[in-house]
């Protein structure tokens, strides 16, 4: 299998879907002539032109809402938010309109839109630019949200998201764009609602999404090397729909679980998982569920402190050791 960057894998997904379906177009700030602020759409404007790859002014409420409207008429907009943090300017469109239109029309209308961009901390861009709103989105029935952790998943989930008939919000990560993974050649689709066991193990389960998957894999390596403990790492990939079975089966096998995310703890994804696990696998738990998330404060700028604020492999190991 060829190795591709996360960025290139996404880029390939866009090319393939643009060619496959004439309703697919890309829109966002700097996505066309500038090749994208993070170069995720590099070369696409050159290849497909203004019709399929559209630069938008700085008007998130306007152009995201426009995308929702266009999707009501059957187009398949793939809208870039330069940062998911800028979604907050467009929340009414993202939540009230895209999230509710199908329901409020009694199923007469649907919105096959993708809204995507990076949502992560760790790059010292401060509190206004470091939001991870997957939990806000997952809190809205009607919306789907996924957070790919590898290049292959980024490509496969993006292609699926574009073909899905509901609004799918894809949260990427600027720290992963340049990382390489093997990506299957040819048509590669990853279904929404299917977790992936990124590492098999029998002693403890780590459940994570996005870059926290990488952190969890590193923690699992440390535990194995230092204590011979075999941790299983479940990558949720998609947050809503959620692959409850894979999570529960892993917990039933290992009887111990640490929930890892880069989000803040209150009402984070881990809170929903913890509720589900204690309700549906209570008898299988040998220890309290542990959660690892960012330190509960706005994202600090100071570079060494921001490192501390985000979950590290050592934090995951420490949480695991509490219940081993």
């Amino acid at each position: 299998m060829p190795k591709l960057t996360y960025r290139q894998a996404l880029n390939d997904a866009f090319s393939e879907e643009i060619e496959r379906d004439e309703n697919v177009f890309l829109m966002g700030e700097e996505v066309a002539q500038y090749d994208g602020a993070y170069k995720v759409t590099q070369g696409l404007w050159k290849k497909y032109g203004d019709y399929r790859v559209v630069d938008a002014p700085i008007s998130e409420a306007g152009f995201i809402g426009l995308g929702v409207g266009a999707s009501m008429l059957g187009l398949r907009p793939v809208m870039e938010l330069m940062f998911w943090s800028f979604a907050y300017v467009a929340f009414d469109q993202l939540i009230n309109n895209a999230g509710n239109i199908r329901y409020m029309s009694g199923g007469l209308i649907h919105c096959p839109i993708v809204i995507r961009g990076p949502a992560n901390g760790g790059t010292n861009v401060g509190a206004t630019h470091s939001h991870t709103p997957e939990n806000f989105i997952a809190n809205t029935p009607g919306l789907k949200v996924c957070c790919p952790a590898t290049a292959a998943d980024a490509k496969g989930l993006m292609k699926t998201a574009i073909r899905d008939n509901d609004p799918v919000y894809v949260m990427e990560n600027t720290l992963l764009y340049g990382e390489e993974w093997e990506v299957p050649e040819g048509e590669h689709l990853v279904p929404l609602g299917k977790a992936d066991v990124k590492r098999e193990g029998s002693d403890i389960t780590f459940v994570a999404h996005g870059r926290a998957v990488i952190t969890s894999l590193q923690a699992a390596d440390i535990l194995e090397a230092e204590r011979g403990i075999k941790a299983e790492v479940v990558d949720l990939r998609s947050i809503r729909p959620l692959d409850a079975d894979t999570v529960l089966n892993s917990v039933k096998k290992t009887n111990r679980v640490v929930l890892v995310e880069e989000n803040k703890p209150f009402c984070g994804v881990g809170a929903q998982l913890a509720s589900m696990i204690q309700l549906e696998a209570f008898d299988h738990l040998d220890a309290p569920i542990q959660r690892v998330s960012s330190i509960d404060a706005p994202a600090i700028y100071s570079p060494p402190l921001e490192k501390v604020q985000l979950p590290s492999p050592a934090d995951v190991v420490a949480a695991a050791e509490k219940i081993l």
Binding site: N124, G126, S302
Partner: peptide, 16 residues
């Protein structure tokens, strides 16, 4: 520099 002696105690950075 993200230092405690910064105008925002290193919490805001260049933009803030």
């Amino acid at each position: 520099y993200g230092k405690a002696t910064g105008c925002s105690k290193g919490k805001g950075g260049s933009m803030h």
